[in-house]
């Protein structure tokens, strides 16, 4: 049935959006780093999965298990080496925002430049599980379905860790207020580094998953950064559940617009929805009331 087709593809798309955004909400909401190089990290993970698959025949699922810890470590080093000095010297949140925007903008060009030097500007893709599976009579590509399922599992695991564990509670405390968190004995800075690195692991996961069904090239990072930013802002900064809901809403809206309105209007519908949400709720769906 047509409606099921649309809803299903919307949910799959939304799950991927949500995963891409959850990493950013950790980096921005908790570590207070507005990471403009975020999409470049996603694409870098996609290229890593491609290289592992095409050259060594490693399945993307295994690539996931390699890429996530590697990216965790890389992001932890980036935070400690590049960003922590900025955090230390910033007199207030606004100054930190300007500094991190400039610094990660530079990082964006470096990562993109390295990818361009390694892979050139051409598009890449590989074929993994590109077979249709029927769900309630509607065909869905197996790789998309698998990606969405892994995305959902990771999101649930992260949500559980944030709400049920001691470390998760500390991370949420730092997200709410770094200064008050230190008052109750939480080492805000090392938790910020941890959250940034965890966000990096999520980025790597989304990059690998996206590469299973999407054609990508070295210049595409900006697209992911923007999608992630919009989902994060729409959901409310620092709120993982908000990112999940906003991602699903945007994915569904995109599929509905393609199916029932006009394919040329999908992006317009997405942005209109985003703007409308902000006009009604100025700090996003799950955001705290503004200052």
């Amino acid at each position: 049935m047509f409606v099921i087709d649309v809803v299903l593809s919307g949910l799959v798309l939304g799950g991927i959006y949500a995963l891409i955004a959850i990493g950013l909400t950790l980096q921005y909401g908790v570590a207070r780093i507005m990471n403009l190089a975020y999409g470049e990290f996603t694409v870098a993970a996609s290229f890593a999965a491609y290289a592992l698959f095409a050259l060594a025949g490693v399945s993307p699922i295994l690539a996931l298990a390699i890429a996530m810890p590697v990216s965790f470590l890389a992001n932890w080093l980036i935070y400690q080496g590049l960003l922590a000095p900025l955090v230390r010297r910033a007199p207030d949140a606004a100054a930190l925002e300007v500094d991190t925007i400039l610094a990660t903008f530079g990082l964006l060009f470096i990562v993109q430049g390295v990818l361009l030097l390694l892979f050139g500007g051409t598009y890449f893709s590989y074929s993994y599980l590109a077979v249709p599976i029927r769900i309630a009579g509607s065909p869905v590509a197996a790789n998309r379905l698998l990606a969405a399922a892994i995305a959902a599992a990771l999101a649930v695991a992260l949500y559980g860790a944030l709400t049920r564990t001691r470390i998760g509670t500390a991370i949420r405390a730092v997200a709410a207020s770094p200064s008050s968190a230190s008052l109750v004995g939480i080492d805000a800075r090392s938790y910020a580094a941890f959250a940034f690195a965890l966000g990096g692991a999520m980025v790597a996961a989304s990059g690998v998953l996206v590469s299973m069904f999407l054609t990508f090239n070295a210049a595409m990072g900006v697209v992911f950064t923007m999608k992630a930013l919009i989902v994060v802002i729409m959901g409310g900064v620092g709120n993982a559940l908000g990112a999940l809901v906003a991602g699903l809403i945007l994915g569904l809206a995109e599929a509905l617009a393609t199916g029932f309105l006009d394919p040329g209007l999908t992006m317009a519908v997405n942005f209109a929805l985003f703007l409308a949400v902000l006009l009604v709720r100025p700090t996003g769906l799950f955001g705290k009331p503004g200052r």
Partner: peptide
């Protein structure tokens, strides 16, 4: 009513919306 990063991304979304339209 928007402030901070919400204003930043709103203006970005606005530019993209106009482009799409």
């Amino acid at each position: 009513r928007l402030s901070g990063v919400y204003f930043v991304i709103f203006t970005f979304g606005l530019a993209e919306l106009i482009r799409q339209l």
